[in-house]
Design a protein around this nucleic acid. Structure first.
Length: 297
DNA sequence: AACCAGGCTGCGC
DNA sequence: GCGCAGCATGGT
């Protein structure tokens, strides 16, 4: 059953190719598949699993549902999802003006033109992913995520390809942390993950509840109240899911590495220097972090 | 073979 | 309030 395609007009300073490049930068992410000119992904739309592809066509991004039934409401939901995934609402030009003034980073304007801060729209997925990624190298982190997703997530099969959705909180809320030990999660990491899943299942934590808080500090605090969510994780999620423009995952090893590589700091302990550097990017801190991450690949 | 990876908690001081 | 070991495993 071929379904109706959806179109989104691309904003200025948007490069689908740069976004795809970032998605496919050498890690084994199990939640989408990047092809030559397109990406395929499965998500829950209007309560139903839907597999879709995104490609470019002239001035538009074209979304093609590949399996699953998309209702009329689902269509606008799917469009909204894609716009959020690639941060298509933001006007990047103020950020590029700031970059231009920065001798060390001005090259990024040309090198990464149109790269958008790729989001993780789902709060539970973002928290799980950042808990998984704590302290270990990214290859290992992606492997852990794949094991978790393949063990507990729904799957859509199409043309001998399996497309997974991230597990629902309700599913992970009722497992035992020791079940995750066999996937090579550490004991504490397994506890954090199940604990967060239970918080979602018990409705003690949700994206909308977080969004209803009025200040950054309140949102940050609401997150760090849970075991396993420290300041790095909270800021990572505020950046990737809540799209806080001034979120900085302080202490992030990748960020520190990139700052060293650009001779912005000499040592990783120079917190003051980092703070004053970011002051020049007020309102665009998270974009700066994202572009610095991009520079590592 | 140590040492570090997209950190965090719990402990001792 | 601050420093530090321990965590599971892979890569260098």
């Amino acid at each position: 059953m071929q379904q109706e395609i959806l179109r989104i007009e691309k904003p200025a300073l948007f490069s689908f190719r740069e976004c795809l490049w970032f998605l496919d930068r050498g890690y084994d992410d199990c939640l989408f598949r990047v092809g030559d000119q397109e990406v395929r992904k499965a998500i829950l739309v209007d309560g139903h699993p839907v597999l879709f592809s995104i490609r470019e066509e002239g001035r538009d991004l074209v979304i093609q549902p590949l399996s699953g039934r998309v209702t009329l409401r689902g269509q606008s939901e799917l469009k909204a999802y894609v716009m959020e995934w690639f941060d298509m609402h933001t006007d990047l030009s103020p950020f590029y003006t700031l970059l231009q003034k920065d001798k060390k980073l001005a090259y990024m304007r040309e090198a990464y033109t149109g790269l958008r801060l790729i989001s993780i729209a789902d709060l539970f997925e973002a928290l799980s992913w950042s808990i998984i990624g704590q302290q270990i190298n990214l290859n290992f982190a992606y492997r852990l995520k794949r094991r978790l997703v393949e063990a507990y997530g729904e799957a859509i099969n199409l043309n001998h390809e399996v497309h997974h959705l991230f597990p629902k909180p309700a599913v992970l809320a009722v497992i035992s942390p020791s079940d995750l030990r066999s996937l090579q999660f550490s004991e504490s990491k397994a506890r954090y993950l199940v604990g967060v899943a239970q918080a979602f299942a018990d409705n003690k934590l949700s994206k909308s509840q977080l969004q209803s808080l009025s200040t950054y500090d309140e949102r940050h605090q609401a997150l760090t109240a849970f075991k396993g969510i420290g300041t790095w994780t909270a800021n990572y999620v505020l950046m990737k899911t809540l799209r806080e423009p001034n979120a900085i995952p302080h202490g992030d090893v990748g960020l520190l590495k990139a700052l060293e590589a650009h001779h912005i700091i000499r040592e990783r302990s120079e917190a003051q220097k980092i703070q004053s550097y970011f002051r020049k990017y007020k309102g665009w801190e998270s974009y700066l972090v994202f572009y610095l991450w991009r520079s590592l690949s």
